[in-house]
Structures are given as C-alpha cells and as structure tokens.
Simulated scan of single mutants.
Amino acid sequence: MNRGGCGGGPGRGGRGFGGRGGGPGFGPGGPGFGGRGPRGPGFGPRGPGPWSGPRGPRPGGGGGPGSGCGSGTGGGNQGQGGMWRDERPSNKILTITSFSVIKGRGEPYESSVFEAGGYKWRLVLYVNGNQNDGGNNHISLYVRIEETESLPKGWEVNVELKLFVYNGKQRKYLIVKDGIVKRYNDAKKEWGYGKLIPLTTFLDTNEGYLEQDIASFGAEIFSGTAVQVQEKVTFISNPPNNVFTWKILHFSNLEDKFYYSDDFLVEDRYWRLGFNPKGTGDGRSQAIPIFLYAQGHKPNAVATNTWGAVNLRLKNQRSSNHAQIYSAAWYPTRSDYGVGVNTIISLAEFNDASKGYSVNDSIIFEAEMVKVSVTNIVPI
C-alpha cells in the first residue's frame, strides 16, 4: 500500500502535486465499440471488436505554497511537487495544441519513442486521468520502457524519474518526482504518476498550465544533455483528401465475415474501412456495422497515437438522407485497430427498397475524416 505524504516548508510558490508510479497491466476485455452520442469508442484488434485494459496506484500529500512529498511502497501514484525550474526537461518534451479537442478522453496518448540513458522510452499521457491508478480528476503521466527484446534475460533498469508540467504564466516547469529509484524490468515496464496534477488546477486558465489551449509536458530519465527538440501534436480540421468512398457490389452474395476496403491516406497515416454484412455485437443480424481502422504511418512520419475523428456514412443513393454516425478516438501505433459502431442502420430500414440505401445490389460507405492529429519533432 502506498501511504500518505507530508507537507514541506516554504518554497518557491506553487502547489504540491504528482504521484508515485504504478506499473502497467494491460489485459484484454470483451469486445467493445464506439457508438452514438455518449457511447464512447471501443478499442481493439482487427475484426468485430476493440478493447484495452489498466494500470495501478494512490495519493501522497501535497505541500502548501512550497513543496510536498509522498512515499510508500508498491504501486503508489503521488510524488513530490511544488518545485519549479526554468530549464527545460532534458530528455523529452511533449506539446499538445488544441488541447480542448481531447479534453475528457479516457484513452491515453502514447508519444513517439525517444532515447535516454542508452534505452528507449515512450510517454503515456491520460488527459482525463488513469482511472485504474487512482487518477480521477487528475492528469496522469507515465514513462514506459520500449524495445526490451534485445536486453539480456533478467534485465533491470534503475532510474531516477522526473516528470514536468509547463506553466506559461510563470514561464517555468513544475517538477513532479518522489526521489525513489524506479526499477524497470519485465514485470514492471511503466512508472509514473496517476495524480500528476489536479484537473481543476490544470484546466483553470488563471493557473497558467493551459494557455491558448496549449499543454506541454516533459520527462527526465537519469541525466543528459538538454533536449533541443520537442514533440508537437497538432490537430488538423478537414485535411486535404479527407473523404474516402467505398462501393461494394453484389451485397447479397457477401458471406458472414469481415470485409475491408483499400487503404487510404489522410495526413501521416493510412486508414481503411471494415464491416460484416451479417452484423456484429449487439447489432448481430439486426443492423449493419461500420468500423474505421488505423493502419501504418507513411514513410518518415513520427509514429505515435493518431487522433481520428470521422463521419461514417452509409450513402443514400437516391437522396442526401444518408445514414451517418460520428466517431472519435486515439488510435494507437499498432495497425488494424478499429473503432466504429455495430448499428449504423437497421436491417429493416436497409432492406426497404424505397429508402435507397441498396441500389442494384450495391451499397456505398463513406468516411469523412473531419479531424486528425499530426505529430512532428520540431526545434525548441
């Protein structure tokens, strides 16, 4: 159990935030899908479903207008905060523009891979808190070690980890740490803080962490030369060539399996559509589903999560009364990750010839990518 923390003496202003790192523990769940309105996205592999799973921890104490500290054993989630510095984090800076686009999302953003101390790492950011790590009403941030396959059996990497949140009002970085060595190994590849900073503080524009809808985070692992570049995530609305049309012939002859469109490129990533003509999940045999799948990145693109917001349509071939659903989610770096809906249209409505969704035994799906993210590594 991770026990409480303590308040420190006076310091250089600010608040005490942060947390001790809880480790990962990803596990599959059952199939889940994104849906209309409040039904969030589903996540998972190629086929009918999607899924994702957890991580683990809990609070220490924050200091007053100086410093605070948290301590304990096991997977806690709160560390010492309230300390500030002018210098940028030395290993990784992640800047997200148009932060309001993803405010409230539950799935994490996973950064591109970066190197520090001779190892490869990735930042994992939960903008609405990691609920499985006690991160309710907080920003959660972790550092995960990557590309460990080449390390010797029984490997262990011990690091001193510092995470950062930039405050534009003070023009300084808030440092979050707990002073405890983080032991990375096969059983524990991720450390960080479920309670990096309270959402009420972070989202309050008077506090200075979110200025002009831009948020910036950072990490230091061991010590290193000052970083000269930052990872910048930008959201592109209605990018060029953002509409893809998929016409399917001989619909009545299709089998009970998933069919996939050709890949299409929007900004830095390839995408494809997929569906099962006999239905999936709770729409099985009652409705037609449609899913958007993220594929690989184009050459030389920065391979990170990609935000994909899309209008998915079954076209009405006799009028503009199309069946349409909106879906938005972070798509991870792996390919064949699908998000969509089981029920874009009921079979009863689809089979009504007067509606115009099926003409000459053909149907037309359309994907309009209304907002995607593009990640670049740029000079500071």
Rank of each mutant, 00 (worst) to 15 (best):
N2P: 04
C6I: 13
G7N: 01
P10K: 09
R12S: 06
G19M: 08
G21E: 04
G27K: 10
G37V: 09
P38Y: 09
P41V: 13
F43D: 12
F43V: 04
R46S: 14
R46L: 11
G47D: 12
G49Y: 09
P50S: 15
W51Q: 15
S52T: 12
G70M: 07
G70L: 09
G76M: 03
N77F: 15
G79M: 09
R88Y: 13
S90T: 10
I93E: 02
L94W: 05
L94T: 09
G106S: 15
A116F: 03
K120Y: 11
R122N: 02
L125D: 04
N128Y: 00
G134M: 05
G134T: 01
G134V: 05
G134F: 00
G135E: 04
S140G: 07
S140F: 10
Y142C: 09
V143Q: 05
E147I: 01
T148I: 13
N158G: 05
E160T: 13
Y173M: 03
L174K: 07
V176E: 12
G179W: 02
V181I: 14
R183G: 01
Y184F: 15
K188H: 14
K189L: 13
K189T: 15
D213T: 09
I214F: 06
T225C: 01
T225F: 00
A226I: 07
V227D: 08
Q228W: 00
Q228P: 00
V229G: 03
Q230N: 11
P240I: 07
P240S: 15
F244W: 12
T245R: 13
T245P: 00
I248Q: 05
F258T: 07
D263V: 12
L265W: 00
R269Q: 12
L273C: 07
F275P: 10
G279D: 06
G281F: 03
G283N: 11
I288V: 13
P289Q: 08
P289C: 10
I290Q: 09
Y293N: 04
Y293E: 09
P299F: 04
A309I: 00
V310T: 14
N311I: 12
L314W: 04
K315G: 01
K315E: 05
N316E: 14
S320I: 06
A323Q: 08
A323H: 02
A323G: 08
Q324M: 15
Q324L: 05
I325Y: 01
S327Y: 03
Y331W: 14
P332Q: 10
P332F: 12
Y337L: 06
V341Y: 11
T343R: 13
S354E: 11
G356Q: 05
Y357W: 10
V359E: 05
V359Y: 06
N360D: 11
N360P: 08
N360E: 11
S362L: 01
I364A: 06
F365W: 15
E366T: 10
V372L: 04
V372T: 12
N376A: 11
I377R: 11
I377Y: 04
V378F: 08
P379S: 10
